[in-house]
Design a protein around this nucleic acid. Sequence first.
DNA 1: TCAAAATGACATGTATAATGTCATTATGAA
DNA 2: TTCATAATGACATTATACATGTCATTTTGA
Lengths: 153, 153
Amino acid sequence: MYNVIMKAEQLHQLIWMSRPLMQAAEACVEAGLVGTNLTVRMRAVLEMLDKYGEQTVPEIAARLEIKRQYVQIMCNETLASGLVEQRPNPRHKRSPVLALTDHGRTLIEEIISNEMKLMERVGANLSGENISTALEVVLTVADRLKTQAGESE
Amino acid sequence: MYNVIMKAEQLHQLIWMSRPLMQAAEACVEAGLVGTNLTVRMRAVLEMLDKYGEQTVPEIAARLEIKRQYVQIMCNETLASGLVEQRPNPRHKRSPVLALTDHGRTLIEEIISNEMKLMERVGANLSGENISTALEVVLTVADRLKTQAGESE
DNA sequence: TCAAAATGACATGTATAATGTCATTATGAA
DNA sequence: TTCATAATGACATTATACATGTCATTTTGA
């Protein structure tokens, strides 16, 4: 019985750490962008293109789970920077595919590499075991919460 | 070497789950508020008063780490609901203390109890061990990120 | 006593989106 | 081939959740 309550409380604490965690993470990303002319949302576009290859705006929107209209703005901004270019899309003649330019690829990969170095520092005295466990728990919890959102009443 | 990279990547994944996790959690809270006339921010005020007892607006703001001007708005809204009342503040004659009314206490405690039940369902097939580990990891990571935000370059 | 700080109130600004709408294709089924 | 339907980009509007700035009025504490 006590166990159940303890679990619930720790879970509660875990879940609500997600906000400060996110804020801290975003602050780190922003800090890593100082000096480049990138904004956080431009970085997000570059990351998607680096990670999943060239895509259309609606595809990026689907991956980011953000409405296409806003992602369009993000992408237009990024296009203007010259880090990304449009290429003809064989699958849809009106919706060009976005792709990293060489400059864009170099930049985003350097940024991500720096972020990974930060991860190494942050994880320095945590065991791989524990990180794995934490990731698993968080994935499970997020999944459950998404499911149970409506059924709480 | 591989270990270090694996760790960094899992950590990265863990950290960036914080956003969807938060969104899912907030959706659950909102779902639990349907039927009451509460908004999420009114709920936050009630929770602070329930958890830490009667307080002034600036005190609540400090706990929530939100600017007092906005917390003032949240509190005024909550006051209008009758779930909270003002009481003379012996420590500061111009800044009344906010306290839950009986109705307010009943309501927030029921809401939180329901949220805890949700936690129990969500944690049902996770071990207390693993939840503890996850919490510890997340707390550590959040702490480190806050520290290292500026030093990434 | 008196300068500095705290508080409430109000106005405005900002970032990150969602939503609505339109004209223009593009697509796919009959 | 045609034609209804869907997809896309562009633009406008609205929403949310805050931060910031400012002011008048206490309040406090040295």
